[in-house]
Design a protein around this nucleic acid. Sequence first.
DNA 1: ACTGATGCGTC
DNA 2: GTCGGAC
DNA 3: GTCCGACGACGCATCAGT
Length: 524
Amino acid sequence: MRSVMLSEVVSVLSRIRATASKNEKIFIAADFLASVPRDQLADTARLMIGQLLPSDFGSPGIGFADLKAVRDITLQKSLFSERLTVARVAEAFKTISSISGRKARQRKASVLRGLLIDATREEIEFLLGCMTGDVRAGFSEGLLIEAIAKASGREASAVREMFGILTDVGRVADAVLGGGDKGRAAVLEPMRPVKLMLAEPSMNIRQALASVSLPAAVEYKLDGIRVQIHISRDQIRIFSRRQTDVTDALPEIVEAVRAVSVSSAILDGEVIAFTDKPLPFQEVMRRVTREKDVMGEAERTPVRLFLFDVLYLDGEPLIDLAYEERIERLKRIAPAELLVPRKIIASEADAERFLEKSLSEGHEGVLIKSLKGIYQLDRRSADWIKVKEHITIDAVVIGAEWGHGRRSNWLSNYHLGVKSRDGFVMVGKTFKGVSDAELKRLTDLLLMEVEEDHGSWVKVRPNIVLEIAFNEIQRSPKYPSGMALRFARVVRIREDKSADDVTTEEELRRIMQQQFLSKAERMK
DNA sequence: ACTGATGCGTC
DNA sequence: GTCGGAC
DNA sequence: GTCCGACGACGCATCAGT
């Protein structure tokens, strides 16, 4: 049986990159996949979207910083062509991923060098691109799923649902095109984390209700970590949205779940840091990746679980039931204190009141959910709509970074300052919210203000003012002001304003204090 | 033993 | 996580 | 509607260097 060569993947991807048409990308990919032998489907499919390892395998542990030296050395030596197979690449990265301990980075780099020494220039660029996330072929998970569907003659929606269960494109390719699943059938089952359903963002309640019909359900949107809780007999595991096992970091959540009376289940919910009021998102972050002194941190930063859905119960998948029926089941099995606050609304005013209540209690906003909607794995469906609050300020640009990819020739990432006692203090960066026209305009404006050229970025005189929206002010350990804007984006360029008009550090600090009227502060 | 950089996860 | 552009 | 790729904030673990 033939071996799939890395060069084939690289050349297929350059053809995919060359067309803007999604259909054509899918067609090229499907055509290629159809030619791949079964035993190499998984590795090939992953590589086509720049994935070097199976999704549940961990990560290489070597990144951008280590690659410069590797690139320089190997670029000079790339004399050979078309030697590397997809299988060898996959094997090498599994090895790299498994290396740890003293001098791990160097040892990882040396395995990588051993691989790249047999690679062509294009293959090196591709593999390093996989590691830094800039393959940039306009081809990713979604289109690959469609390509797998096309190559197999199956419905894309069916393959997509399979992906929601298997969570790895390699396993999907293998299951759909290889005719096998290597022991992992594509069925929903406790202890196998899935791709959860997501919500569509919406500006406000009115807009949200334009796509969900009344009556509808409305729930508090809690600012924490999305969790899927898997129960099988006396076993309980907690997984994150991206299928990481976080059970060991959250012992008191495991205990709380013991109050749920089922023989098996998959539950969907949110874990937030909470004392008498919710704590800021930063606090719950201390808990999720924690390995050392978990109990100590648990005392300092208590967490609570709020459940809002059930995907599987006592041996039966429930994802094809309507939301209102799933909620009925959830209410039957879980104690009320573990359920997210929710109600049925019949009017826009009801929804507005519930949003106000959620915000006044220190939460992030609300979700509006269609009563009839099924649970769609791995989908951001209009059946769930989220509404969050945001704040706007005026900030002045004090620096800017040159963009990458489609933003290559523009100043794209703006350093935001607010007015302080003497000058301006930086409170974050943003690149979001600008149209291409604004990007060009801002580049022109900023280039006229350049004070220092640092290559990848420029320091500019504080003369360009932007209206900035954000969701929250975070306590920053990085910025001297001690404040950073969370999810900052540009609303518009304020050519009518000057630096004198921008928000002050004092004002920003007041806004932060206001946040703490409804949120708890950390226990010491 | 300590500090800072880096990777990778959460949002 | 948010957003704009492109299909 | 859907997908992609521009890149933001923080906190923890790990590793490199002193």
